[in-house]
Amino acid sequence: MPTTHTHELDSTPNLTVLFGKAVLTGFTRHGSALPSTVYSRSPVAIDPGHLSAYSKVCGFRLTDQLPITYPHILGFPLQVKLMTDNDFPFPLVGSVHVANRITQLRPLYSTDALRLQVHVENLREHPKGHQFDMITTVSVGDSVAWHSTSTYLRRTGSGGSSGPSEVVVRQPRAVWTVPDDIGRRYADVSGDRNPIHLHPLTAKLFGFPRAIAHGMWTKARCLAAFEGRLPEAYTVDVKFKLPVLLPAKVGFATNRTEDGWGFELFGARTAKPHLTGEIT
């Protein structure tokens, strides 16, 4: 295995600066290997006000237990720093978050002092380009309590046709109205100010007719609907399908499985899929 190079950070990377760097320098990147860098930060203390704001935007109850998706936004600045380093082979702009898997080994609380680590691995070919996995690990003391895999697709060509979009035919358990400002509200708590989420005009610059919701907001919103029914340790695995164009009405459906739950988020009128997930 290649030698890793761990860099201990003493503060959270500035996402505004990093996104600016991505826009100004990121389009010309190329390479064939992922960096061996590991970014680490500790101790990371939880800001109760920020936790409360995140919970409200995503629909979670206000408690001292962290929603399972909350550590993702703590690690996200480290991911962006890694993806905007000069030795990263692909531009951040245009890299698409296509799947996310989180495993919680035990609950995390607002009083915990956390250690974050982020690295990238598993570069592989895809019919439409290349995929790679951003790995985030959260530890308390010497024990890993939470880890995630965020899979990104970097398109390098048109690839083959994926065929017609699947249509979900199950009846929704609930229908949610997603407001047109949810991208800006989630950006305020996550720091992810990708212009495709903020305003119709900036989204159109990247080929979208309207602003789109963050994929990790849709995942968090679905998991908020399961509160009170999940164990202390579990894995939730989602695949992001078609974007949610804002504003929107979406259907949410669940089904029991042998190991836990399945769930889907889809257009309330079109039945086209936005997200599919499994909880085990």
Rank of each mutant, 00 (worst) to 15 (best):
R61T: 09
N255W: 14
D87P: 12
M216C: 11
T270G: 06
I135W: 05
V236Y: 04
H97Q: 11
N14T: 10
I68C: 06
S55D: 07
S165N: 11
S36H: 14
A268Y: 03
L223F: 06
T156C: 04
K272E: 08
A33Y: 10
A174H: 12
L242K: 08
V98I: 14
P247R: 01
P179F: 12
R193I: 12
P89A: 06
H197Q: 07
S162L: 07
G49L: 01
G26F: 09
G26V: 12
V57Q: 00
A225D: 10
V175T: 15
M216Y: 05
F76R: 04
R115T: 12
F226V: 09
Q131S: 10
H274Q: 05
K204Q: 15
D259A: 15
D142W: 07
T4G: 06
L123F: 01
R221N: 11
G277H: 05
A145M: 01
I46E: 06
F60R: 03
T136N: 02
A268Q: 00
R115H: 12
L78R: 00
R256Q: 12
V244N: 00
S36M: 06
P231V: 08
V140A: 08
E121W: 00
Y109S: 12
T84D: 03
W176Y: 13
G163H: 05
L114I: 07
L223R: 04
V44W: 06
E278L: 15
F263G: 09
K249S: 13
L34G: 12
H97D: 11
V238I: 13
G251F: 06
V236C: 13
A45Y: 05
A211I: 03
H199L: 12
V120N: 05
L15C: 08
G267K: 02
P127D: 14
T270I: 01
A53K: 03
N122P: 07
E8N: 14
H126L: 04
V57N: 02
D237M: 07
T151D: 05
A225P: 03
H7G: 02
C58M: 04
V23G: 13
N14P: 08
P195L: 02
Y109F: 13
N86A: 15
T111I: 00
